[in-house]
Structure formats: structure tokens, C-alpha cells
Amino acid sequence: MNTQSLLSLKRIYLLIRRYITLNAKATLIALGGISGFLLLIILVQTYASGQVIYSGFVKTFWAIFFFGGFILTSRIFHELHSPEKSYQYLSLPASTLEKFLSRWLLSSLIYMVVTFLVLGLIGLLGGGLGAGLFGVQFHPLNPLQLDFIQLAGTYWVMQSVFLLGACHFRGHNFLKTLLALFLIGVFIAIFTSLMTKFIMAGQWPEHGGFEPEYFQQVPAFFTVTLPAIAKTFFWYLMAPFFLIVSYFKLKERQV
């Protein structure tokens, strides 16, 4: 290992291995419980409908995928929130960049690969079992379909917000991040309402909503350019921004 370098792939691997070893038991219990629950959904739905149906399984999977992923991400630096443990993590011979990258990879890429494997395997197992047990025709679920990939991409971006929450808050990270998002949401809603009222000056309806022709008078900047900027910000700028801020939060972290 090059100890003068601030970025060593070997150390990142060792940090990932350390995290998995320290959290193996809890992870396996959660994985086993969730997999069993998802399997049951396929079997019940197959039995009830007389054909292999994945809709309930897929909806539940995505709810668990997002909710579970955000909770995992919020707790990814849980060692830092206990003074009895934080010294050990911060004094481990690896750079802040390596510590950050290892936890980011665990809560994004590795989490996504593992959950997609669960999606594929449980889909295969549930569909196969349902078909075998209830004598219906088996058709497999494709875990790599486009809308699934897009949902995973949405997670990839939104996860970075919870990573910042994990680095910034000292305890109850998930709930505090949710609260912060809620407050920011309220602020944006108030701001956009006021902006709309300002732009639509004199045309603000007293009762009911706007007539469609009102929107034709709104400058294209607000109907075309602004949504395009928001989309670009979400897909290309939001995650890097939150990741960079999270890294510096971790770098400044003291016990």
C-alpha cells in the first residue's frame, strides 16, 4: 500500500470489507427478511390471480429499495456519531477521500447491485415456485428493463442528499434529512407561489385555477427553459454537488 498517496484502491477495498464484516449479521437478517416477504407477495398474488403476476412484488420492491437505501445511506457513517467509536474510524490509516468513497460506493453502487440481484433472484424463484405450486404458466421478470434502470438512476441521484445528511447530522440522520427536505420543499413551494403570483400579476384568479390561455402568455423561459435547467440540475449537477459537500463535511469532522 502506498502510504503517501491519498487514493489507494486497495485501501478502499479494505474499508468496504471492514464495513461488510462489521455489519454482516444485521445485513443478512434484513436481506433474508425482505427477500422472504417479497417471495410471499409473488406467491400470494399468483395464487389469487391464477397467473404469475409481479406487479405487487415490483411495487413493494421499489418502495423498500428507496426507503431502505435512504435509511442505509443515512446510517452509513453511524460510527461517527458515537464518541466511543468515532476515534477508531477517524484514526484508521486511510485518507478521508478513501473513507468517503468506500461508504459512497457501499450505499450506492454496491447497494444497487445487491438489490438488483435480489430483484432478479426473488423474481425467478417466486415466479418458478408459483408456476410449479399452482400449475400456472411461468414467465420471467426482466430486472434490467428500462424503467427499472431509470428508477435506480433516480435513487443514485437522491441518495447523495441523504449522504450529506449522514455526514452533517450527529444522530437521527434519516429523520433529520427528511425534515430538512420537507422544510426546503415548503420554502420552494412558497417561493414559486410568490413568483407565479408576481409573474401573473393582475391575472391571479380569485377563485379556482388558471384558465389554459393564461399559460400561453407566460414567457417560454418559465415553461421550457426553467424545467430543462431543473432536469439538467437533477440528473447531472445535484449528485456531484451533494457528494462534494459531503466529502468536505467528512474532512472537517472532529470527535
Binding site: 502510504t3 491519498l6 477517524l90 484514526s91 484508521l92 490509516p93 486511510a94 485518507s95 478521508t96 478513501e98
Partner: peptide, 9 residues
Amino acid sequence: RHPGMLQEV
């Protein structure tokens, strides 16, 4: 918190 320092302490 350079790795070169942390491995020596």
C-alpha cells in the same frame, strides 16, 4: 489525517 501519519500513531 494523512494515511502516512495515521499508520504511525
